[in-house]
């Protein structure tokens, strides 16, 4: 029994990497699939350290104070703005799922790689399917933050 369990667990573990059931994963070329999975794992680590206090482990936020990330229409439709928002904090109230939140997100001194990882993580957690964000995209999006 014990002899069977270990290989069984190993197989199970590989077959069920964090992103395998995602449409995003399936649509990626094989060469990018491993990178996507790595981003999900490292992004979760960034999220736990830097975001979870406010947005909560389940991405639900905190009532009217902190907006949800899970099922958030703002996140879904403003992908180009997210890197700037995280890097520099927010100065304007943001409306998420018809509720207006106070501009109280602090800026986060994260590297562009960490930004790509954490955005990929929130884009693909709690039922979200908002896509894979690469460091190249983060670099480009940070070019026009003032807009």
């Amino acid at each position: 029994m014990g002899k069977l369990l270990l290989p069984a667990l190993l197989i199970f573990g590989f077959a069920c990497g964090p992103g395998h059931n995602k449409a995003t994963y399936l649509a990626l070329p094989a060469s990018d699939q491993a990178k996507f999975e790595k981003y999900l794992i490292l992004g979760k680590e960034v999220y736990t350290r830097k975001c979870q206090n406010c947005h909560q482990g389940n991405g639900q936020g905190l009532r009217g104070l902190i907006p949800p990330l899970a099922g958030a229409d703002f996140l879904q439709h403003n992908q180009h703005r997210i890197p700037c928002l995280l890097k520099f904090g927010t100065n304007d109230p943001i409306t998420v799922n018809n509720r207006v939140y106070a501009p109280q997100m602090p800026h986060h001194p994260l590297t562009n790689l960490e930004l790509a990882e954490v955005i990929t993580y929130i884009n693909n957690s709690w039922g979200n399917e908002y896509g894979f964000v690469t460091v190249k995209q983060v670099d480009a999006r940070l070019q026009d933050c003032s807009r």
């Binding site: 909560q56 905190l62 902190i66």
Partner: peptide, 9 residues
Amino acid sequence: PTICPVMKT
């Protein structure tokens, strides 16, 4: 920015 949202939760 740190522990207050956790405390309030």
